[in-house]
Design a protein around this nucleic acid. Structure first.
Lengths: 129, 129
DNA sequence: ATTCGTTTACGAAGATATTCGTACAATAAT
DNA sequence: ATTATTGTACGAATATCTTCGTAAACGAAT
């Protein structure tokens, strides 16, 4: 399987599409331009290139094309996280976890979800012994 | 404060230096070449550039220069994780946490550390109410 | 039908990252 | 002292990313 490597800008676009679902260039651009400073044609060009790279699918049946993420958020997260654990966190997942929990304000529900997840993992480990 | 952005290759080099401590180009290169395919002068050049960018310090007192990471692993982790949560995980830290726990085998001690960390956070949140 | 606003297509410039060849300096081996 | 080995410096080629100007296509409004 090929190693996909969305760039920084491409990830931002993917982020919007994962969040909003299928969207036009205009829609994506309007969202990005809230936090980023780039012209419309820049976003357009990026999305066209991403389509060539098969990172996005598009529907050209009407004049205004509609783009969809062609790679799953799940798979992308997986690859990026694993890469990051290896290079930046010296292979320790828990290091990353603590970093994530420490500096991003997490809601109570989120923490609860994590706790449940932890329990599930520990149970699983026990069963494997 | 300036936004530091080590590139992919630069992160790999930083990773080695964080792990091994001060090292020569040769030492770094030998480790990188186990997983990567690049010539010695490539690694050298990268490290020289990183020195110009103030990502690395170096000791040139002997012929063979010794390089040291000039930015902390901690700070770098912080920035990368926050960026990643925002773009790839839609702002949800717990999503990242679960991804990290799910696909990287974690030891029992690691899980224990995480649990303690969770408790500390929850206690803190309670106190703030 | 002409004009206006919106969109896509294309190309190219500018910026940044990556790679390596070659030359030169320092040290070690003979 | 000569030669071989190892390292640094430098420059340049290559690749990749990012940006945008301009032109053409399309549809809507007049």
């Amino acid at each position: 399987m090929k190693q996909l490597r969305p760039t920084e800008s491409e990830l931002e676009i993917l982020g919007v599409l994962w969040e909003k679902g299928p969207s036009t260039v205009r829609e994506v651009h309007d969202i990005l331009s809230q936090t980023k400073d780039a012209g419309y044609t820049t976003t357009l060009k990026l999305m066209q290139i991403m389509h060539e790279k098969a990172l996005l699918q598009r529907d050209t049946s009407s004049k205004t094309h509609v783009y969809t993420a062609a790679i799953s958020q799940q798979k992308t997260q997986e690859q990026l996280v694993n890469k990051m654990i290896d290079t930046v966190f010296g292979g320790s997942a828990s290091q990353l976890v603590m970093q994530a929990l420490g500096h991003h304000q997490s809601s109570e529900e989120e923490l609860e979800k994590i706790r449940q997840y932890l329990s599930a993992i520990e149970k699983q480990q026990k069963d494997n012994r």
